[in-house]
Design a binder for these strands. Structure first.
Lengths: 252, 252
DNA sequence: AGACGCGAATAAGTCGGACTAAACCGAGAC
DNA sequence: GTCTCGGTTTAGTCCGACTTATTCGCGTCT
């Protein structure tokens, strides 16, 4: 229950069971608190409907000031995870109210063991959105879009998906594709989908034996978009997502 | 520049130009601050890259405590609108970092004059997601889903889209449809899409002469889903969204 | 003269404690 | 039995001090 900021990087064994990050540095304090509470809620450790212990008590238990604790709770409120009213306390809202597409919430959801059902749902969303996006991209891409996608692709080929750089390039490719639709709403989705992609590929990687080289599939998509062939782009993207889903399913 | 909470309802002429909601009540104070800053940013009054004036100064200018102001800024940070670092101040992030799907951000975006390009983007998103969702719903809906959709539909027929109740029923219908996919990721999108739907219909309504009765279109979708015909459901939903887009385009 | 590192200024971050306001709940009146 | 009215609890707001992390400018070293 240590309040280490395990969001990225250093993860020292928290000796103290309830206090904040022992060494001086780390991310901002309220970020760590929000991460802690957020994972607790998303992971189901604090079921919807339950109410958190009072601000004063909880802040004291975590050994942080009430201000920092409150600001963390504001973040959770903004993401629809909790709701707080005077006298009633702060309660966890039903899952339907959560902003599951929020990249940070997604990160919290994947910080523990991933819920296989939810992963399936995310792939279904990808299967809906990305082929359509590829179609739009094929119609509207301009020179810069093509360049961005090509660059991401070469980076992806150089490093493999086994490396962080490779996964980043993969995400860049999908981001560039969404960007090429010139649709702000779809771009906004790219942050969520991108997060989902990188988390799932990470888990896929965990189960060794990367079963297939994903680059050729990406190249097919790229070629169709560069050529301005909407139908081919949509089809290629559809098979790409299907294959990715299959790979992921095998490793879970 | 009064800090009235114009999110819903009472909107008394704020005599004082800079202070908070004059009468005692209203929404929570930080909510009003967040609303104020959020609309300023989304509307473009504070362009991306610009930095807000310091906490102390700004809080004093708005005549609120620094704590309340900070908590409001935390909300904006959580939604990806701003980023703040010591010494550097609080800057507005580029639009690509904003969580445009967040219902509250969407509300801020529509609180002023709606950006026609963005409305078009939202409809494009609907055109991508909802037909696919209708297809899934036709495959997976259970008895409760059908009932929820039928209820919403009858409510929608009773009141028209001219009334708040009617628009709420419309939203309920689309929510129930997304729910019927039994896909949590799509359900999460329902909050965003639902918000977009109600905002756009509201503007559509403003331009009088509602050009077409939307109920028959909805009924076609419902029948196909109830009958378990995925292709028909997708097709019906596609025409529904297309018609809605056309209506909206005419009124802008 | 240019690059590098060091220190001071600055703005956000954290703290704590006090007071306010709202909402729930139980006691009392009708 | 229901309704109302306070009291109590809990979040909301305020204030003022201190801390930490940057950035920027100055001076020094190469």
């Amino acid at each position: 229950m240590a309040l280490d900021d395990q969001a990225d990087g250093v993860d020292e064994a928290g000796v103290q069971p309830i206090t904040r990050t022992p060494k001086g540095s780390g991310r901002r304090l309220r970020g760590a608190i929000a991460h802690y509470l957020g994972t607790q809620i998303v992971s189901g450790a604090i079921a919807p409907g339950e109410k958190l212990t009072g601000e004063v008590a909880n802040a004291e238990a975590l050994d942080v000031s009430r201000s920092a604790y409150r600001e963390a709770v504001q973040v959770l409120t903004a993401k629809g995870l909790v709701e707080s009213r005077p006298k009633a306390g702060t309660r966890v809202l039903p899952r339907s109210r959560w902003n599951m597409l929020d990249p940070q919430v997604l990160a919290w959801a994947f910080s523990g063991e991933p819920d296989t059902d939810f992963v399936r749902d995310l792939f279904e969303l990808r299967a809906v959105v990305e082929p359509a996006a590829a179609r739009l991209a094929a119609e509207r891409r301009d020179r810069d879009d093509v360049k961005a996608m090509r660059d991401a692709l070469t980076q992806m080929r150089r490093h493999t998906l086994a490396t962080d750089a490779g996964r980043a390039a993969d995400r860049d490719f999908h981001d560039a594709l969404l960007e090429a639709t010139h649709n702000n709403a779809l771009v906004a989705l790219s942050a969520s989908i991108g997060a989902a992609v990188s988390w799932t590929t990470k888990y896929k990687q965990r189960a060794r034996a990367l079963p297939r080289d994903p680059v050729p599939d990406h190249i097919k998509v790229f070629d169709a978009i560069a050529a301005g062939d909407p139908d081919a782009a949509a089809a290629a993207m559809r098979t790409l997502v299907d294959l990715a889903l299959e790979d992921t399913r095998l490793s879970m």
